[in-house]
């Protein structure tokens, strides 16, 4: 395989080896450096803006003063609504794919659907939500429209991670249950699902973080630039952290004056999303280590 070519000496080989491995190590260092500098930049500029009032007050004086409480609430409500939409469908789809489906045309079409839905640009989900939920169904710009749109967006992620968790449950669990006389559904409900549920929920937390960070799908389906009304009905429009940052940074009349608010809101969103992801990753690692099968 390694024919003796001209210049293919041991020294050259070693030199090339070192150069290439250096580049490969550098990519890892660079990835970490990029992430660290983004985090540091936001921490340094965002921390001064954050205090109790910033987290618990409404914006005042055309957003130049006050806090981001309504945006935080809106983001949380929309993300939870998305999860509420995606979990029943996603878990159901995962149970079908992992427990019932046999390889065939139908299953490849289902998989095609899941993997292509995952690749649809988020702004296209926004257009779809506007056309179907906001206009055709008449839900208007509301928590309901935004949650359904975001729910469809995270459906593939929820499905894939739930299926993965189900597949990691050993086959012997199912066989044991069936051998004891359980029907297929009894085996799934009483044996497979309890064993797989922690893993399925962990994947959903990652999806929750993704839903909280999205901007484009809720811009025309749920988000208001400013509203004083509390999110007490699913037909209300709400503020959200992501659209709040975008609006203040690009559309507002006081772009420079509201910089501290922008950095503060960005830091809050980052902590929220990364916090959720980190929580899920730690739990997942724990589950893997603690697994007894």
């Amino acid at each position: 395989m390694l024919e003796a070519r001209k210049g293919h000496t041991r020294q050259n080989r070693r030199r090339r080896e070192r150069a290439v491995l250096l580049f490969i190590r550098l990519t890892a260092v660079l990835a970490l450096a990029v992430m660290a500098s983004i985090l540091l930049y936001l921490l340094i500029n965002g921390l001064p803006a954050i205090n109790l009032a910033f987290l618990t007050e409404f914006p005042r004086d055309s957003m130049q003063k006050g806090g981001v409480l309504p945006a935080i609430l809106g983001t949380v409500v929309l993300a939870l609504g998305a999860l509420l939409t995606a979990i029943p469908l996603g878990f159901g789809a995962a149970v079908y794919l992992a427990e019932y489906a046999r390889p065939g045309v139908l299953v490849s079409f289902i998989r095609l659907g899941v993997s292509n839905l995952a690749g649809v640009p988020s702004v296209v989900f926004g257009l779809f939500g506007l056309s179907l939920f906001v206009t055709t169904f008449g839900f208007g710009r509301s928590i309901l429209s935004g949650s359904l749109t975001l729910g469809l967006l995270i459906l593939p992620t929820v499905t894939a991670s739930a299926e993965e968790a189900l597949r990691q449950t050993p086959q012997s669990f199912r066989e044991a249950a069936l051998a004891l006389g359980a029907s297929r559904w009894q085996a799934i409900r009483q044996v497979v699902l309890p064993a797989a549920l922690p893993g399925m929920l962990t994947g959903s937390i990652l999806a929750l973080g993704r839903a909280a960070g999205e901007t484009a799908p809720i811009m025309f389906t749920a988000a208001a630039a400013y509203t004083l009304a509390p999110p007490d009905s699913i037909f209300r429009e709400v503020m959200a952290l992501s659209t709040h940052i975008y609006n203040l940074a690009t559309n507002s009349t006081h772009i420079e004056e509201t910089r501290p608010q922008q950095f503060g809101a960005a830091l809050v969103l980052l902590v929220l999303v990364l916090g959720l992801s980190m929580f899920a990753i730690v739990i997942r690692a724990k589950l893997r280590r603690g697994r007894k099968w």
Partner: peptide, 25 residues
């Protein structure tokens, strides 16, 4: 089983709905 199948087709169904609405509009 049929119920779970319906859940599983929902992603594919959403794909088609998205396509239909985009092209219609």
């Amino acid at each position: 089983k049929f119920f779970f199948l319906l859940c599983a087709v929902s992603a594919l169904g959403s794909m088609f709905l998205i396509m239909i609405f985009l092209f219609m509009e």
